[in-house]
Write a protein that binds this DNA or RNA. Structure first.
Lengths: 222, 222
DNA sequence: CCCGTGAAGATTGTCAACAATCCGGAGATA
DNA sequence: TATCTCCGGATTGTTGACAATCTTCACGGG
């Protein structure tokens, strides 16, 4: 019975894990806006489960830092002030520079670069088509790809949360205009720095990109 | 009644948070050894609570990555093979280099350096006294201090988990001998690089320190 | 001797009810 | 009018019981 035919272990997931994912999505999309109280009874009813599994999912989000718990009062979607946003981008810089270095020194650099270039191309196309939604999605896809290619479960897990928080910010500022060309070129420069194998340049490009993105965000928020 | 007399908000914590902390401590100290199944009933009995709050605490640890969940089978303390340990140190490097840079560019560099030097001194003293336990503790205190001084809640949260995992490794290898002098000098060099304000050197020293620590660990584990 | 079958025991997953706590407003008092 | 007290409603925190699932081991057939 061992024919080695690439079967993956059945992906069954616990209910709390499923709920966690949906809640995280909701926070990301702004369906659950920052500062909102998460009522246990109403959410449990919405998911069609009892409060037990729902509370377990909540605790996961608390540990993740997306939800704040006030004892005997309730759970609230975490709000991000400017200090928090700066910290968010500081941490993203830490994770993504590490990821870039791992990619640059990895076994499959050429393949990785190909995938990153594809993501960058997708951004350029979205920018050319002036499709801001697609541009934002491609932007996220690029950064997720970068961290995935590093092949580090820890960097990946941390980054996942950071991206949710980032999306939270952008959702809150929906409708604001950012110059597409800047964004595209910043990403292209990152890829080329990785291709060049120049660690210092790589770090510098990512740092500048984060700084730019942070500035855009903070400026728009005022 | 508003005399503004520096009271801090009562630190009341939820039961699941308290349990989480204790479980984490147990994992760290090896009381709950890697790979062990965490029985809900027995643990709940030990804590004197019912299974509800305990399960919530477990979900936090799952999210943190310290515990692995197998559906309908149970929860197990995560095991760290060599690949995992490498990833752990990769991530620690990412977090701690970022922290060091934040400290170096922070407002209170001189004060921060003082505290780091104090930690380094404590290590030197423990090494001189050949107290290996104290040396290990001082080592951890140094790295925790470094990340705390960065003042980043996100770096801090991630790092906390990483340190638990690191301690897990060392607990498993208890009794192994590491050269104290090497450890002390590596930390001193990190502090001095921060003092010199040389970003590149700082990153290099931390990377080398992590590499050394990783090598010591991997060598000892074989 | 090996392998499939099935029941018993143990463990996890889920639920609905109970207890404790908090918030807001009505009423009383100075 | 301002303030204190107390009560009702709502929400969270906790519990014990029930359902579903997995593991183990003995049994019987090939």
């Amino acid at each position: 019975m061992s024919v080695a035919s690439g079967f993956q272990p059945v992906p069954r997931e616990s209910t709390s894990a499923l709920i966690t994912r949906q809640l995280r999505e909701g926070i990301m999309r702004g369906t659950l806006p920052a500062g909102a109280q998460l009522s246990e009874v109403s959410l449990a009813a919405e998911f069609g489960v009892s409060r037990g599994p729902l509370r377990e999912a909540m605790q996961r989000l608390v540990q993740e830092g997306l939800v704040r718990s006030e004892l005997n009062r309730g759970l609230f979607v975490k709000e991000l002030d400017e200090t928090e946003i700066r910290d968010l981008y500081l941490t993203r810089t830490a994770i993504e520079t590490a990821a870039a270095r791992a990619v640059a020194h990895g076994e499959t650099v050429t393949e990785s670069l190909e995938r990153l270039r594809a993501r960058a191309r997708a951004m350029a196309e979205a920018a050319a088509a002036e499709d801001l939604q697609a541009l934002a999605d491609a932007d996220f896809a690029f950064h997720e790809e970068l961290v995935n290619l590093a092949g580090s479960p820890r960097l990946h897990r941390v980054h996942e949360t950071l991206m949710v928080e980032t999306r939270m910010c952008l959702t809150a500022l929906q409708g604001t205009y950012f110059d597409p060309e800047d964004q595209v070129s910043e990403h292209t420069r990152i890829v080329e720095a990785i291709a060049a194998g120049d660690d210092a340049a790589m770090v510098r490009e990512i740092e500048e990109h984060m700084q730019e993105a942070l500035d855009r965000l903070v400026r728009a928020a005022r």
